[in-house]
Simulated scan of single mutants.
Amino acid sequence: MKIEGSVAIITGAASGMGKTLAEKLVSLGGKVLIADRDVSQGSALAEALNKEIGSNVAVFHETDVTKWKTLEAAFEKAKDAFGKINIVVNNAGITESSSWFNDNDAGEESCEYMTLNINLVAVAKGTRLALKYFAQNPQVGEGVVISTSSLYGLYNSGIVPLYAAAKAGVVSLVRSHSLARKETNTRHVALCPWFIDTPLLEGTFREALTASSIPVIPQEPVIDAFIQAIEDDTLNGAVLTVFPGGTEIIRENIYSGNADQLKMVRAMETSIIEHQYALAKEARKL
């Protein structure tokens, strides 16, 4: 996909990596909707980008990614402002604020496990809205959904188990949705970065990394991986790891011992997907 002339929705784009990605896409000729809860920083970023480019290339929408209606409104605002959507980046995320011995942390809002709600459930909601839009609007071309996972999406964690479970779920979600690329007019990519130099690391995590001599990578290689995920149309169901040693593409693992069984499952799923698609078209939902 060409970034020039494209329109992206980025959640969690008022600061950190989302902000840097928004700036990069605009610099390459794209347009962005900044979806974030931070009205002050989000509005300021949109204003700064528009002033820098000299035209309307960015809009801000106050968005709580855990609320379907505000996410849905972000999609509507992007369509109203720019006429279309091409890219959806599920980027908003938080760290774990409670543990097994402290489940009454105020940050979890009465033990609702916001870590799971923001890092996984919100990604599922943003992806569903994207699928619906791209499937119903083939004239805009194939869309791409990029979802931010983590190194903990690939490896277990004893210190942030809810975060790791959510990020592993993001990888599974991306790989699963990628199987209906033809029917949904959408391809999917997951990014699994190492520890990145963003505000999310502040506090105990950054101190622990420093004490353990664990490196932190800058945002630039992660942003480059986002650009690669957008521009390379061969990437679908792929996971891009961005570690200190560089970026690697991981495809779905198929072990020789279960390859035949997996083929049977895939064949069954393909027939169901095609049937569901045919029914949706008949009901004029697509």
Rank of each mutant, 00 (worst) to 15 (best):
170 V>L: 10
146 I>W: 10
69 K>F: 10
224 D>G: 14
16 G>Q: 10
52 E>C: 07
147 S>Y: 02
166 A>L: 03
166 A>H: 11
156 N>S: 13
125 K>Q: 15
54 G>Q: 14
130 A>L: 01
210 T>D: 13
243 F>K: 11
204 T>G: 02
172 S>I: 05
177 H>L: 05
49 L>G: 14
252 E>S: 09
18 G>L: 15
60 F>H: 14
220 E>A: 15
119 N>M: 04
90 N>D: 02
265 V>K: 00
39 V>H: 14
127 T>P: 13
176 S>V: 04
7 V>K: 11
157 S>E: 10
77 K>D: 00
254 I>Y: 10
277 Y>E: 05
25 L>Q: 12
269 E>R: 04
286 L>T: 03
80 D>A: 04
114 M>W: 09
91 N>Q: 02
122 A>M: 12
267 A>T: 11
194 W>L: 03
241 T>M: 08
246 G>V: 00
260 D>S: 11
258 N>P: 04
49 L>Q: 13
269 E>K: 00
278 A>Y: 07
186 T>E: 02
2 K>E: 15
96 E>D: 08
259 A>P: 08
190 A>R: 02
189 V>E: 03
213 S>P: 00
260 D>P: 01
140 V>I: 03
1 M>H: 14
1 M>W: 13
55 S>F: 07
237 G>K: 05
152 Y>R: 00
240 L>G: 06
31 K>P: 05
183 E>F: 06
88 V>Y: 12
189 V>N: 06
